[in-house]
């Protein structure tokens, strides 16, 4: 196991090591200490490595992740797991704004709260949040699933396409063209699987409500034009 102490080592060295791992140590593990809110840690990994960051991270942690599992034992700044393609990113604390933005795949787990614009323009990622999500979450979300064990802030799912949203608590209000939908068997199954994958089995799928697109906004309709 390789360890990087960011009090002494550069972020570039850490990321270069991670980028070299497909040929040097494809299934290896890396521990990062003293992140102290630094930016762009563990970005652009493309190997099934196990990365553990001990502490709070700044902007854009684990961006563009493929295959790797990145654990953050702390809070994450804005842009966590932006454009993730596959793999897992797990945060023990809270995540700041636009976590999982535009992410195509993989699983993003926030054990605490996620701030505003969680899952904005998500394109296939699964996001499970143990606490609340802020306003404008899943804005223009295209596909993928967002599971919120707490409450959702204002304008949830504004201008949503085909992502599926599940919220256990209250929703401050729904954004344009986002509506509540029935929970079918397949949805209960889906939520159960996602909660299991996220290790949040203290929540019951039957406590969740489902939200998605009314499909009125993304088909051209003259009444929607201003």
């Amino acid at each position: 196991m390789k360890e990087f102490n960011l009090d002494q080592e550069e972020i570039r060295g850490l990321n270069q090591h991670l980028h070299d791992m497909p040929s040097t140590d494809p299934n290896g593990s890396v521990t990062v200490t003293n992140p102290a809110g630094k930016h762009a840690l563990a970005v652009g990994i493309d190997t099934p490595a196990e990365v553990t960051i001990e502490g709070h991270v700044g902007y854009y942690c684990a961006g563009m992740n493929q295959q790797a599992t990145v654990h953050i034992n702390g809070n994450a700044g804005p842009g966590l797991a932006e454009n993730m393609m596959s793999g897992k990113v797990i945060v023990s604390g809270n995540a700041s704004q636009y976590c999982g933005a535009t992410a195509h795949g993989g699983l993003l787990v926030i054990r605490g709260d996620a701030s505003s614009r969680c899952g904005i323009s998500m394109k296939g990622v699964d996001i499970v949040v143990g606490g609340n999500v802020g306003h404008m979450s899943a804005f223009m979300a295209q596909t993928g699933r967002l599971v919120v064990c707490g409450d959702a802030g204002a304008a949830l799912g504004d201008s949503i396409y085909e992502a599926r949203l599940y919220v256990r608590g209250s929703v401050a209000n729904l954004g344009a063209d986002c509506i509540e939908k029935e929970m079918g068997e397949e949805h209960l199954q889906e939520v159960t699987e996602l909660l299991e994958a996220a290790g949040m089995t203290d929540c019951k799928a039957s406590d969740f409500r489902r939200y998605g697109s009314a499909r009125q906004l993304y088909h051209f309709n003259i009444d929607n034009a201003y």
Binding site: A36, G37, K38, N94, S116, G134
Partner: peptide, 22 residues
């Protein structure tokens, strides 16, 4: 604006940390 400024303070690692609501 960012946590890395707060990380400089004594006891930051055990502070209650949150993002102010809009």
């Amino acid at each position: 604006s960012e946590y890395r400024a707060i990380a400089q303070l004594p006891g930051a690692e055990n502070a209650r940390i949150w993002e102010p609501e809009p």
